[in-house]
Amino acid sequence: MKRVLLVLCLMLTMAVSAVAKDNDDQPVSALDSIVKSGVFKVGLDPGYMPFEMRDKKGELIGFDIDLAKDMAKSMGVKLEIVTTAWDGIIPALLTGKFDLIMGGMTVTQLRNLRVNFADPYIVVGQTIIINKKVADKVKSYKDLNDPKYTVCAKLGTTGDIAISKYMPNAKHRQYETEAEGMMEVVNGRVDAFVYDLPPNAIFASKHKERVVHLEEPFTFEPLAFAVRRGDYDFVNWINNYLQQIKGDGKYQVIYNKWFESADWVEKVQ
């Protein structure tokens, strides 16, 4: 009997030790460091209108900026925006330069291999800005799938991926910023620019004399905030936060400010 009890005790000790080891192996949530430091660090790449951009004074404004400020307020901490080039934003998150990517990032399966996404906070799709000289021949992305057309996108974006996937026969150019690609279309050096609907619509409305906006999205793209893999506590917090502000109307107020009104445009022109 004593031997049986001894074996049971040993087994229980081993089980407790295994659980403790598993708990030790669990990644520390960014929430812990945020609360401890009193600072919420958000990574984004300014220039994605109306999500994040600089006004005439050089201050960051936009849909994502307002959400980031409100998230920090909900945590009771200060907000620190870490501006980062888009093509290096995931490595920067993984190396701890900030706690969360909030830059209009589209959820893709490839990105999901490297980061965890919270629930989407908005859904957009890819649209196309074309130069007016090809407007009579180009009515959709299908018409651009031809070697005689040059189509461009911002490097590393889902627009960049969409060109390779849906327009493989077109000449494909990449630019560091969306502004470069858009102006190439305005100046007639490329035929089309592929990007998310909101910034494309805003840009096209200001250059109607030179470009045409093919405003029907040809992709489905949910945008979500990204955190380091394994940080399910943070994902849970973000999801609950989004549910709360969508339920109490705060999200709609912020959305209307940036998507239903053009009052902010004067601040960036």
Rank of each mutant, 00 (worst) to 15 (best):
I90W: 03
E80P: 04
R228W: 06
F193H: 00
A92Q: 11
G76S: 14
W264D: 09
D160W: 01
G188S: 11
K139Y: 13
I254V: 13
T150G: 09
G38A: 11
F218L: 02
Y48R: 04
A18L: 12
G58D: 07
K165N: 12
I90T: 05
I163K: 00
P46E: 05
V227K: 07
Q26L: 15
D146E: 06
D22E: 14
F51E: 01
P91I: 08
M14I: 03
V138P: 03
W237R: 04
V138S: 08
M182R: 01
T13H: 01
S29W: 12
A18Q: 05
I101Q: 02
T13I: 00
T150E: 10
I202S: 02
D143A: 11
A15D: 04
V235L: 13
V190K: 01
M102G: 00
M1T: 10
I202A: 02
M53H: 03
T177E: 13
K2G: 05
Q269H: 11
V253R: 08
E184G: 03
P27W: 11
L94H: 02
W264C: 07
V4G: 04
A224D: 08
K250C: 03
V123E: 11
V16S: 07
Y141N: 08
L67W: 01
P46C: 08
I61G: 07
M1K: 10
F220D: 11
G43C: 04
Y195R: 00
E266P: 00
W258F: 07
H172M: 12
P222D: 12
I130Y: 04
A30G: 15
D248Q: 04
K250Y: 02
D160F: 01
K148V: 14
I122S: 05
V190G: 03
